[in-house]
Design a protein around this nucleic acid. Structure first.
Length: 625
DNA sequence: ATAGGGTTAG
């Protein structure tokens, strides 16, 4: 619809025209500009028409034009201020938004709600709560929208501040006092809040007491059951929901994928497509992540063809999920095809390809990507460094780390853990100590991965005392930290301490792993703790359901042989459900020598030689291929 | 009459 203006129309007509245009979503920015000129030339000071133009500018992402008009307009009203505050918040320009907010002489529930919501969206829950308090002090009554917003503020603050939980409670009190507990959207938000706070009874009670429920209430309940880990109930909710939307499906798929129910996630994804829904970007990301963790190339490439069918292969988010999936399936070359196809690659896509090549063992390709990428951030450097570390190129790790420092990029804890790991394997204690100093300077010593790699490095270079010091100072320890310390002690000959530490660990909520049992059995065999070793070996299966592998069996053979129980050791090998490794026979042979049992020794030696011969044959075949 | 703020997933 062309706009011809020969005679300037009256302001009222302009306004209605503008509104009609903005409703039909026509690209009429120029028209708006002409209108703006007309209004100005007529020296119209009514803010209304200006507000409409500002909104139109914002709808087409013209923040600068909106700002200019805001400053130029002769009069501003409360709507003008709220519009401009909200726009800045949506662009992440928090401090600008706050300046406009403070300039606003006429505050209302809406203007406060807008700024509070903006703060929440930008992750500033605490500041949002402070402004909410200010609003109450100004004597303004919150409404249902304010409450949904402020509940979100409590939720996002609860992640960092434990004391936010009572704040949530007092807001619930205010909601009840002001009779807003009957609003559907307020209840929906409350369900989410209680779910994140693990207040199972309250979350359920809010849902049960609702008189009217919408699809959001049901989706919130669905997510609540996933949040508390009740997958069965979650599925029941999904099946009995009176209505579902795209987000209900997304929730189901994302949550199943997170809970390692990859196949179920894929099933729901196909059901969703079959029911006629168009999966959005995050749906594809979840389902591809499920394909990646089940390393099912079949599923992954089926999803890929749906990506193509829905025309989403050019989306950066989807593309990086695809690249990641192919790399996890050890088909980074297919990931590369996806990569090459993306027209406007963002840094995440580049980093995913880099990490994908590293994971797939293609260091040279990773290097090429690293060289070619238009910009590097901390993730890129970390990916390259950990890629070298993963592929045992320890020298390159140190080289790249220096280049990183030279480029001015500040390393993170993650970076150090790769570099320290390389120092431990080179081994380069001098360099490692140097890095330890840097870590202390940057205040990164309290991170789990940093502490673990440091203690591992010290014990590997023979300084187990330093390892022990670091371990005892670590504020948080995970399974890997315990494994490293137990192993470090065992390998350094501090066998009893290693076993003691293992027992201490069992009192915490950490569950012993295969690797830990290996260290413990190794410790027992080297210390001649026959009964203990047998006890641990039995408890592996009985108490923890871990099936011993050939290396565990070797430790047991070693344990028996060192105790002189050669016949038992040989019988033990005969009962092994897995193929004995060369070391298994070597352990028996060594025991036979110690206790001068020629008969068993000869049999062990024959088996050992045969194993070695087979190994060489295997290697030979590998080399020919 | 027409312009401003919100809830469920990642």
């Amino acid at each position: 619809m062309p706009l011809s203006i020969s005679i300037p129309p009256p302001a009222k007509t302009i306004t209605s025209l503008l509104l009609r245009f903005s409703k039909t979503h026509l690209p009429i920015l120029t028209a708006y500009l002409i209108q703006a000129q007309i209004i100005k030339s007529k020296s119209n000071s009514d803010p209304f028409a200006y507000n409409v133009i500002i909104s139109s500018f914002l709808a087409s992402n013209q923040l600068e034009s909106a700002r200019k008009l805001f400053e130029e307009m002769p009069e501003r009203n409360i709507v003008t201020y709220t519009t401009i505050v909200d726009a800045h918040m949506k662009c992440g320009l928090v401090s600008d938004a706050l300046i406009y907010f403070r300039r606003n002489p006429f505050q209302s529930v809406i203007s406060y709600t807008a700024v509070i919501n903006g703060l929440v969206r930008n992750g500033l829950g605490l500041r949002a709560l402070l402004l909410f308090k200010e609003m109450l002090c100004d004597g303004l009554m919150p409404n249902e929208i304010t409450f949904t917003t402020i509940i979100r503020a409590c939720i996002i603050s609860a992640y960092d501040h434990v004391y936010m939980l009572p704040m949530g409670k007092s807001i619930v009190g205010l909601i009840v006092k002001t009779n807003f507990e009957k609003h559907v959207s307020v209840c929906n938000s409350l369900i989410t809040m209680f779910s994140k706070m693990r207040e199972v009874d309250n979350a359920k009670r809010v849902f049960d007491e609702m008189i009217v429920r919408d699809v959001i209430s049901w989706t919130a309940l669905l997510d609540f059951y996933f949040e508390v880990g009740d997958l069965k109930e979650a599925r029941q909710v999904f099946d009995s929901m009176p209505e579902r939307n795209e987000i209900s499906w997304s929730t189901m798929i994302a949550r199943l994928s997170q809970n390692d129910e990859s196949l179920e996630a894929l099933r729901f994804f196909y059901r969703m497509v079959h029911d006629g829904y168009k999966p959005n970007v995050s749906c594809f990301a979840s389902v591809l992540s499920a394909s990646a963790s089940s390393t099912s190339l079949q599923f992954g490439s089926n999803v890929h063809s749906l990506v193509v069918k829905f025309g989403m292969e050019n989306d950066n988010f989807v593309a990086s999920s695809l690249i990641d999936m192919y790399s996890k399936c050890r088909k980074s070359q297919y990931g590369r095809q996806v990569f090459d196809f993306v027209l406007d690659k963002n840094i995440v896509v580049w980093n995913t390809m880099l990490g994908g090549y590293s994971f797939d063992g293609r260091v040279e390709d990773a290097e090429d990507i690293f060289e070619q990428m238009p910009a590097r951030n901390i993730v890129s450097w970390n990916a390259m460094i950990s890629g070298y570390d993963l592929n045992e190129r320890y020298g390159k790790v140190l080289e790249t780390f220096d280049a990183m420092l030279f480029s001015g990029q500040v390393p993170m804890g993650m970076t150090f853990s790769s570099v320290i790991h390389s120092c431990a394997n080179l081994p380069s204690l001098e360099k490692g100590k140097n890095l330890h100093g840097k870590i202390l300077k940057l205040g990164l010593e309290n991170e789990v991965f940093v502490g673990t790699s440091l203690l591992d490095m010290y014990s590997k270079s023979g300084d187990v005392e330093s390892s022990k010091k670091i371990f005892s100072k670590m504020p948080q320890k995970n399974e890997v930290s315990w494994t490293a310390m137990i192993q470090g002690l065992a390998d350094s000959g501090c066998v009893n301490e290693s076993i003691e530490l293992f027992e201490r660990m069992k009192e915490t909520n950490i569950i012993p792993t295969e690797t830990m049992f290996l260290s413990i059995l190794f410790a027992c065999s080297h210390c001649g703790l026959l009964d203990r070793g047998l006890h641990y070996f039995e408890s592996m299966k009985k108490e923890y359901g871990i099936f011993p592998n050939e290396r565990h069996y070797t430790c047991m053979v070693d344990l028996l042989s060192r105790a002189g129980l050669l016949r038992e050791a040989e019988e033990f090998i005969g009962r092994m459900p897995v193929e004995p490794e060369a070391n298994t026979w070597a352990a028996l042979l060594s025991g036979s020598c110690t206790f001068r049992n020629e008969e068993i020794g000869e049999r062990a030696a024959k088996k050992l030689l045969f194993r070695i011969y087979m190994l060489q044959l295997g290697d030979g075949r590998k080399l020919q291929r």
